[in-house]
Design a protein around this nucleic acid. Sequence first.
DNA 1: TTGTTTGCTAAACACTGTTCAGTAAGTTTG
DNA 2: CAAACTTACTGAACAGTGTTTAGCAAACAA
Lengths: 203, 203
Amino acid sequence: MGITERKEREREEMRQLILEEALKLFLTNGFDKVSIRNIADKIEYSPATIYLYFKDKNELLFALHQRGFAKMVAEFQPLRLLSDPFEKLVEMGRSYIRFAVENPELFDLMFIMTAPMDKLDKEDWVEGDQAFGLLMQVVQECMDAGIFQKHDVQSTSMMIWSSIHGYTALFLRKRLGMFAECDVPVIMDDAFNLFCETLRKGL
Amino acid sequence: MGITERKEREREEMRQLILEEALKLFLTNGFDKVSIRNIADKIEYSPATIYLYFKDKNELLFALHQRGFAKMVAEFQPLRLLSDPFEKLVEMGRSYIRFAVENPELFDLMFIMTAPMDKLDKEDWVEGDQAFGLLMQVVQECMDAGIFQKHDVQSTSMMIWSSIHGYTALFLRKRLGMFAECDVPVIMDDAFNLFCETLRKGL
DNA sequence: TTGTTTGCTAAACACTGTTCAGTAAGTTTG
DNA sequence: CAAACTTACTGAACAGTGTTTAGCAAACAA
């Protein structure tokens, strides 16, 4: 009686197929220019079929949201090799910004869009929690190494995260129009370096 | 021949009426739950009429975007009275965060939503430029007073702005689900204070 | 070979932003 | 004043959206 198992497997494959094609469309056309009908066309099924695998569009978006976190955490792995904790922290920030600039649509989905965050349980936060845990770990190392004074790790990590996040949020949502377009990357880099320097001296 | 003048005036009044009612709807129902038809119902005109006064929905949103900046700059005025430049800076940050929390929809429109920023000219940035100028001024004062070292004012201001912005962006878009809901305000406040302290010591 | 379950879809519902032909009132001209 | 022109407005449509539901054919179980 392997039938139920096979059906279960086929169901999961279908879910992955939908997510795969949906992600491709979203990444090339942008999230608000892709409709359920577009995705249905791509996978050569009717739009209604998608609703047999996902409660609604937001649930589909949230599934991709999780994929985004997986990709991001993967990109953070190399910097585990760095030995100096502060250098590790700086590189982590740089990676965060790089990820945002190189994967604007994914980053948007993960940290800016309202859509996928409609109503979710505690268990939906494992990915985010994991990524934040990584940061807290490095901050703790900085404190243990005497580079930072001993403050509350959670608040300190939160301070650093949101500061770095600010750059990406303003940049991705094109709120830097007061600067000449060509200056923006330079200003952002200067600001980031200044932030790191300030942390080093002041924390 | 005051007829053309009267017509001009009536046209402007109509624009303001539309904006007024649109803003009311947006602020109570949220931006993505208000349609052109809703606004048309409220002002008791046909939906098509709105398109005689605004090119499209984004132009309407951008007009409100400007109103948001006016309100924000107005809320910044009181802190001009403070004499200590660093205190002024801290209070400015606090005001920014308070404005975001108390006017989430407006703040969203001003700094997070993509819709109103479709394609705009240099001249559309006067409000944003003005607000950023205010910040640069205070940062300059801090440097002149010897509280901060003399770095590039623009980069330093940008660093401070985006750091503060980060809190609001993550909070408003509900990306702090890894913390217990009741802890969030405390953590945010701790993080903000730590940031100010770090600036004071490290910049 | 029945009866039941499953997977899927066509069609509809209630929306959305936007356009355009047509109308009725206001304004200008003869 | 009457005719011509201008302006402000609207009803209806277009092309799209997310989502639901009734029904159908194939796969499975008895």
